[in-house]
Amino acid sequence: MILIIGGEAQGKRAFAEEKWAQSLNISEKIKDRGGISWVKGGLASWETFLQGAYVCEFHLFIRRLLAADPSLHAPAGIQGGRKRKSGCCLPDRHGLVSKLLAACPDRVLVTNEIGYGIVPLDPFEREYREETGRICCLLAAEAKEVWRVSCGLGQRIK
């Protein structure tokens, strides 16, 4: 897996498409249609996200898990094991990471880095920030490569 992190609107997907277009065998026809067909974590079902080779908005996928979004259709063991006062249903972090890696080990996963800045006042937002960071740490430990993108420029950190 290749993990790409960075702030909002920093060019993470464009960086990924440019960096791996040749090795991903992206044809000219696909490039003309706007590049890779990305699976978006803010919208995709569990199965679609699980099978996606190029997935973005992973942070929004985690938000949906924490909120126990019924449209996600995540398995009970992953979605909502431990209920918190904040209303979050904390996912099984290790189970989630294992399933993501097993389903598509060569995936390119793009996520916003949401741990910088002011700590949110809202309990749900704090849990969301914390869980996203912890899950991304687990993914980074297992990833073949980890990249941080800022202003469209990628820096390999693993």
Rank of each mutant, 00 (worst) to 15 (best):
L66R: 10
A143E: 07
R93K: 11
Y116K: 13
E57W: 07
G52P: 06
L121A: 08
S71L: 15
W147T: 05
G34H: 08
C104F: 03
G7V: 07
G11R: 00
Q155S: 11
R129P: 11
T132D: 05
E28K: 13
E142F: 02
R33P: 05
A21E: 13
G41F: 01
W20L: 09
V149D: 10
R13Y: 03
K99L: 14
G52C: 08
I78Q: 08
A102S: 14
G154N: 08
T48R: 10
I2G: 00
E130N: 12
L121P: 03
V97S: 07
G6S: 06
V97N: 04
Q155F: 06
K99Q: 15
G87V: 04
A53C: 12
A102K: 15
L66E: 11
K31T: 11
V39Q: 02
E127Q: 08
R148H: 13
L153S: 09
G95C: 05
A44E: 03
L24Q: 09
K31H: 10
A44S: 14
R107L: 03
F58Q: 05
L138V: 01
I26Y: 07
L65K: 05
L153M: 13
L139H: 02
L96H: 00
E130I: 04
K31A: 15
G7A: 08
R93I: 02
I135E: 04
I26M: 15
C56V: 09
I114M: 10
W20A: 00
G11Y: 03
F58E: 05
C104W: 01
I26P: 11
F61Y: 09
